[in-house]
Design a protein around this nucleic acid. Structure first.
Length: 591
DNA sequence: TACAATGAAA
DNA sequence: TACCTTTCATTGTA
């Protein structure tokens, strides 16, 4: 207990954190590894301890006594006994059950006889058991390893998978010390650590899992480092073709592999090599097409496990090469059907890479069971302190509705309210002020929004070019070029900004509207401006929302992830604008 | 054979 | 919540 502590632990497993407390930062950093942020209004943030957050923490090596010690040292009041029990109980469950391979049989074992018996009797678990050996060992169906892991996690008893992997075909891979493009190349310490943790954990600790790192921190490089450790034929899955090509470029640039060994498998090109980069879509597409062929009449949405397996065996991507490692890029975007495939791929080592484990579809459990637990993460602010990503300030500008809009808003059906609030025309004025404020020669401002109409209108008003999904590639490249060179200092983008990896860096990002509470979107967007600036300058992020509207609620949810990473949102209301929005010249004149 | 245009799905 | 973008396969066109 600590009378000056910043946190209060409640018996429903929620933790309140006082933002204005001098110990706020210490407290937040202490609890972040085993909690999730659920609410972050101005003064009091709410975190939650969930089963999954405890298990993920346990998987990174954190133990219950230390978790309790951290809570104890930051907490204003005694920790409720139920919370202590819950933490001890659930953290102990990770590793209680283990999967092992013995003489080609898949064994499930535990040291706790009673608990083991109870688990084996569970209705969902029983069908997987082939043979009882003794009180602490059973033989389970090796063909359904993934399925079993899912069931166990859902039942509250995650199993630690120590059954190892089928060895893929070997492939010698070395990282270069000088890239093909002639630059010196060396792994950063955290990149080396991340790859090591993943690989070393391969020997005794499962060897599959997820590495969580911010955008722009070199996740691809960690993938390469892992490949160099595992030395095997590798299948890399990415969310779109341009990141596929980015991977191929990086591999050829930074390893000894050459273009004839690294192939793309997508809707456009279907080639397979010792290292193959494929899109998630191509996997789901394949399934659907086949499914349609097989039963044209009666609809049968779920394929049986045998069918999935047969599918896989006939799929060139899996029949032609023996993969020893699969890398899931941006694992938070993994489409649901690919989980089914991953269920069948439990014998292959799997590495997930992501900037945020949060999925808006609540499939975190699937990622945990089927790809693996979190193996490594590092808070954004630490990379910021080490200079690997730019420092950033996040601001939320709240603007009122004019009376006319207020009336319209009040009368509109619920589902139109968010659009009305998001497209509040008063936003134009704020954007204009911000643009004036950030008009130094080195400033590059990106404006990003969700509604094409709104963007088009603003683009017209302020005479700023706009890139949307239907902008042809030629045009895009031209605009990117102008933006990079400084001929065009401001640029507007629609949702393409979330995906386009070739979008040049900027130091200011203005968000005029965003998706319903998508945390990962906000994180992705901030990532746009986080590349370190050559002059060491800070990045600025402004989110403009309409005050007292649904949009404000959504904005709050969007901000959760970044708040969790230690970014404080400054809230700017009318009245503060005049001070904050003056041009640098005006400010200088005042001083 | 290569390519646009189109539509469905996520 | 509704909207937007992307991907892939199919069909049509040169």
């Amino acid at each position: 207990m600590n009378p000056n502590g910043a946190i209060i632990v409640q018996s429903n497993l929620e933790i309140m954190v006082e933002v204005d407390n001098p110990n706020y930062t210490t407290a937040r950093d202490a609890i972040a590894p085993f909690t999730e942020l659920v609410k972050s209004p101005e003064h009091l943030h709410t975190y939650k301890i969930s089963h999954l957050s405890l298990w993920n923490a346990a998987a990174t090596g954190l133990r219950a006594p230390e978790v309790l010690e951290r809570l104890e040292s930051q907490s204003r009041y005694p920790i409720p006994p139920t919370v202590v029990t819950e933490i001890e109980d659930y953290m102990a469950r990770y590793g209680l059950l283990r999967l092992k391979k013995e003489d080609d049989r898949l064994l499930m074992e535990s040291d706790d006889k009673l608990m083991f018996l109870e688990i084996c009797k569970l209705k969902d678990v029983e069908p997987f058991i082939i043979e009882h050996i003794d009180d602490t060992h059973v033989v389970v169906d090796p063909e359904r390893r993934g399925h079993l892991k899912m069931v166990l996690t859902n039942a509250g008893f995650p199993v630690e998978d120590l059954a190892g992997y089928t060895v893929g075909d070997p492939l010698p891979i070395q990282l270069r010390e000088t890239t093909v493009s002639g630059k010196p190349f060396k792994l950063r310490d955290y990149q080396k650590d991340a790859a090591q943790v993943f690989y070393a954990s391969g020997s005794e600790k499962g060897g599959s899992g997820v590495i969580v790192l911010p955008c722009g921190s070199g996740k691809t490089v960690i993938g390469l480092a892992t490949m160099a450790l595992v030395q095997t034929k590798t299948l890399i899955l990415t969310p779109n073709i341009s990141s596929s090509r980015q991977w191929i470029r990086e591999i050829c640039d930074k390893t000894n592999l050459t273009l004839d060994q690294v192939k793309e498998y997508s809707g456009e090109v279907k080639e397979i090599g010792p290292v193959t980069v494929a899109t998630y879509q191509i996997l789901t597409q394949r399934k659907r097409a086949k499914k349609g062929d097989e039963n044209k009449e009666g609809k049968e949405p779920e394929m049986t496990e045998e069918e999935v397996k047969k599918e896989l065996a006939n799929f060139p991507l899996f029949s032609q090469e023996k993969w020893g490692l699969m890398i899931y890029d941006e694992v938070h975007l993994l489409p649901a059907p690919v989980f089914r495939l991953s269920t069948e791929m439990q014998a292959t080592r799997r590495l997930g890479l992501t900037a945020t484990l949060v999925r808006e579809d609540h499939k975190e459990t699937e990622v945990f069971s089927l790809i693996g637990p979190k193996k490594f993460d590092i808070p954004w602010r630490i990379l910021e302190a080490q200079g690997w990503i730019a420092t950033a300030d996040c601001n939320e500008i709240r603007i009122p509705m004019d009376p006319e809009l207020k009336m319209k808003y009040a009368l509109a059906p619920v589902r139109d309210k968010i659009t009305l609030a998001s497209t509040n025309p008063e936003k134009t004025d704020i954007v204009e002020r911000l643009l004036k404020y950030f008009s130094k020669p080195d400033d590059r401002v990106l404006i990003i929004g969700q509604y094409i109409d709104q963007l088009e209108a603003l683009s017209e008003d302020l005479q700023i070019p706009l890139i949307t999904g239907k902008t042809p590639n030629k045009e895009r490249e031209k605009l990117y070029g102008a933006f990079r060179s400084g001929a065009q200092k401001n640029l507007m983008v629609s949702k393409v900004g979330n995906f386009a990896i070739d979008l040049p860096d900027a130091n200011v990002l203005i968000q005029i509207s965003g998706t319903f509470g998508s945390r990962q979107e906000e994180a992705q967007r901030l990532g746009r401006v986080l590349r370190p600036k050559s002059d060491g300058g800070a990045a600025h992020f402004y989110s403009i929302v309409t005050q007292d509207s649904k949009e404000q609620e959504f904005a709050m949810n969007r901000q959760l992830f970044l708040t969790e990473q230690g970014y404080a949102y400054k809230i700017i209301k009318r009245g503060d604008w005049d001070i904050l929005m003056r041009t640098p010249e005006e400010l200088a004149a005042r001083a």
